Deep mutational scan, measured.
Amino acid sequence: RRRVRAILPYTKVPDTDEISFLKGDMFIVHNELEDGWMWVTNLRTDEQGLIVEDLVEEVG
């Protein structure tokens, strides 16, 4: 499975499927959606939700 790491922190918009995260958080990518969004699991918090790919980098 594809893994990505947050390069910046992010605070979710209330009442959306987004998740908040810290710089350095690792995610497993489940689905890549339109307009650069990804459905992921945050490995630190075990939370699932949407993040935008501009805020993460690939992990080898």
Rank of each mutant, 00 (worst) to 15 (best):
R1V: 15
R1L: 15
R1Y: 15
R1G: 15
R2H: 07
R2Y: 06
R2W: 06
R2C: 10
R2G: 08
R2E: 06
R2Q: 08
R2P: 08
R3I: 14
R3N: 09
R3D: 04
R3H: 13
R3V: 15
R3M: 14
R3S: 11
V4W: 05
V4T: 04
V4N: 01
V4G: 02
R5Y: 06
R5I: 11
R5N: 03
R5G: 02
R5P: 01
R5Q: 10
A6T: 02
A6D: 00
A6G: 04
A6N: 00
A6C: 04
I7H: 06
I7E: 04
I7D: 03
I7L: 11
L8Y: 14
P9H: 10
P9S: 11
P9Y: 06
P9C: 15
Y10Q: 05
Y10M: 05
Y10S: 05
Y10D: 02
T11V: 13
T11L: 10
T11F: 09
T11Q: 11
T11D: 12
T11K: 09
T11P: 05
T11M: 11
T11E: 12
K12A: 12
K12E: 06
K12V: 03
V13W: 09
V13R: 13
V13D: 10
V13K: 12
V13M: 10
P14V: 09
P14S: 09
P14D: 11
P14F: 08
P14A: 10
P14Y: 07
D15A: 09
D15T: 07
D15G: 11
D15W: 09
T16G: 05
T16H: 03
T16F: 02
T16S: 14
T16E: 02
T16N: 04
T16I: 02
T16R: 04
D17P: 10
D17H: 11
D17Y: 12
D17R: 12
D17E: 10
E18G: 05
E18A: 04
E18D: 03
E18F: 06
E18T: 07
E18N: 04
I19H: 01
I19W: 01
I19E: 00
I19L: 12
I19N: 01
S20Q: 03
S20L: 02
S20F: 02
S20E: 04
F21I: 04
F21R: 00
F21P: 00
L22I: 14
L22R: 10
L22A: 10
L22V: 12
L22D: 10
K23G: 08
K23D: 07
G24N: 08
G24S: 05
G24K: 03
G24A: 04
G24E: 05
G24L: 03
G24H: 07
D25N: 00
D25Q: 01
D25E: 03
M26C: 15
F27G: 00
F27E: 01
F27Q: 00
F27C: 02
F27W: 01
F27V: 01
F27T: 00
F27M: 09
F27H: 02
I28K: 05
I28T: 09
I28L: 11
I28M: 09
I28P: 00
V29P: 01
V29D: 00
H30S: 06
H30F: 10
H30A: 06
H30E: 15
H30D: 07
H30Y: 11
N31F: 14
N31K: 15
N31L: 15
N31R: 08
N31D: 13
N31T: 14
N31E: 15
N31W: 11
E32D: 11
E32K: 13
E32G: 08
L33K: 11
L33W: 13
L33E: 09
E34V: 13
E34P: 12
E34L: 14
D35C: 15
D35S: 11
D35Q: 14
D35T: 10
D35K: 13
D35L: 11
D35N: 15
D35R: 09
G36Y: 04
G36N: 08
G36H: 08
G36M: 04
G36R: 07
G36K: 08
G36C: 06
G36S: 06
W37Q: 08
W37S: 08
W37E: 05
M38P: 00
M38K: 04
M38N: 03
M38D: 01
M38I: 10
W39V: 07
W39H: 06
V40N: 00
V40Y: 00
V40T: 04
T41G: 03
T41S: 07
T41V: 10
T41F: 06
T41Q: 10
N42K: 06
N42W: 01
N42D: 04
L43S: 06
L43M: 13
L43R: 04
L43T: 14
R44Q: 05
R44P: 00
T45E: 02
T45Y: 01
T45A: 03
T45Q: 02
D46F: 15
D46W: 14
D46N: 15
D46G: 15
D46Y: 15
D46L: 14
D46S: 15
D46V: 11
D46Q: 14
E47Q: 11
E47Y: 04
E47D: 11
E47K: 07
E47I: 07
E47C: 13
E47V: 07
Q48I: 12
Q48W: 08
Q48V: 09
Q48C: 15
Q48T: 07
Q48F: 08
G49E: 00
G49M: 01
G49R: 00
G49P: 00
L50K: 14
I51Y: 01
I51R: 00
I51T: 03
V52P: 12
V52R: 10
V52I: 12
V52G: 10
V52S: 13
V52W: 14
V52L: 15
E53N: 13
E53Q: 15
E53M: 14
E53I: 13
E53V: 14
E53G: 12
D54T: 14
D54V: 09
D54R: 11
L55N: 10
L55G: 05
L55R: 08
L55C: 13
L55I: 06
V56C: 09
V56S: 03
V56A: 04
V56E: 00
V56Y: 02
E57K: 06
E57S: 07
E58C: 10
E58V: 08
E58K: 07
E58Q: 09
E58R: 07
E58H: 08
V59C: 15
V59K: 04
V59F: 10
V59R: 05
V59G: 06
G60W: 12
G60Y: 13
G60P: 10
G60S: 11
G60I: 14
G60N: 12
